[in-house]
Design a protein around this nucleic acid. Structure first.
Lengths: 161, 161
DNA sequence: AAAAACACCGCACAATATTCCGGAGAAGGT
DNA sequence: ACCTTCTCCGGAATATTGTGCGGTGTTTTT
């Protein structure tokens, strides 16, 4: 990994492979990782540390079985606000991120304002959370899409290598 | 962690805390984890192994900076199929999961059939992927919502502890 | 009440991570 | 083309961690 002017970095094949492997197996030992990228442990660890320091690796996490832990239902909610002023947006954002069931929140272009991904125990929990959301400041209308079947789960970026 | 009849398991406070900690810091050492749950390393590791064997922990992964790695654009695409037969559904699913840019795919109820989450480099990549998707078997129409601003990223289940 | 089962702890050994050093290769300047 | 400089690589020693075993206290079963 070479440093570039301006604090940015350039990633070579080995770095990409490290990222790809760690993305899928975040807890493999450094020696195993080094073997798989055809490096000795020390430079491999040095690269990992640099990737972490550069912020390319933001952290590590365990993938949990949502259904087994009482979050078997996923739903998407489209939210439209009643006015498109900065103040209304800010207030909505500040409050929506505090709702634990809201796993993701995206501001989108193309018809409505926000798209929310919810992780819920069941439909009862959904009713309760929806009541919370429609009461958020500025919410004009919502539309819910309940996930019937998960086809593909998020397993990270398609780094290929 | 106690075993229950039927291969299922019951999770106590310590297990929930282990899951919560590992979800956010998947690479902490077992001794550190043990300290934080007020256990000695050996039973703590035994619990982790059991949670892994039970499938509650499905794996570990690094969280990468998507924007820095050339996936700065996120888009959601609603897909409606032309007929709602099992054969059409199956063919679509088999092919859509093979597209690398498709990070997630959910079958949903409430207006259209599938909701896709795409991770893309830019709008040029979007055009190319959209062309691929509309050419998939059975696709009648699509509607895209491009993410302008990410408000909340998926950081796992709200286990609280 | 006795016995079994369970979960915990602490210790010993193996594996791993971390840090140091010397050496090799590439880029840039003269 | 040569030399300087910089960066990276590989190996060895030390510190830390992971792992398996025996022992103990507590709870549950009969």
């Amino acid at each position: 990994m070479k440093k570039k002017t301006g604090g940015s970095t350039v990633l070579d094949k080995a770095d990409m492979r490290i990222l790809s492997l760690l993305q899928r197996e975040g807890r493999i030992s450094n020696v195993t990782l080094a073997r798989r990228v055809n490096l000795s442990p020390s430079p491999c660890l040095e690269r990992v540390r640099r990737l972490e320091a550069a912020g390319l690796i933001q952290g590590y996490g365990a993938r949990l079985d949502a259904a087994a832990l009482g979050f078997g239902t996923t739903a998407f909610i489209q939210v439209t606000l009643d006015r498109t002023t900065a103040e209304v947006f800010d207030r909505f954002r500040d409050e929506v991120v505090l709702i634990p069931a809201v796993a993701e929140c995206h501001m989108v272009a193309g018809g409505f304002d926000y798209l929310l991904k919810l992780r819920l125990a069941d439909m009862d929990a959904y009713r309760s959370v929806l009541a919370t959301i429609v009461d958020l400041p500025g919410v004009a209308q919502t539309h819910t899409y309940v996930v019937i079947e998960p086809i593909k789960a998020d397993l990270g970026l398609p780094l290929g290598s």
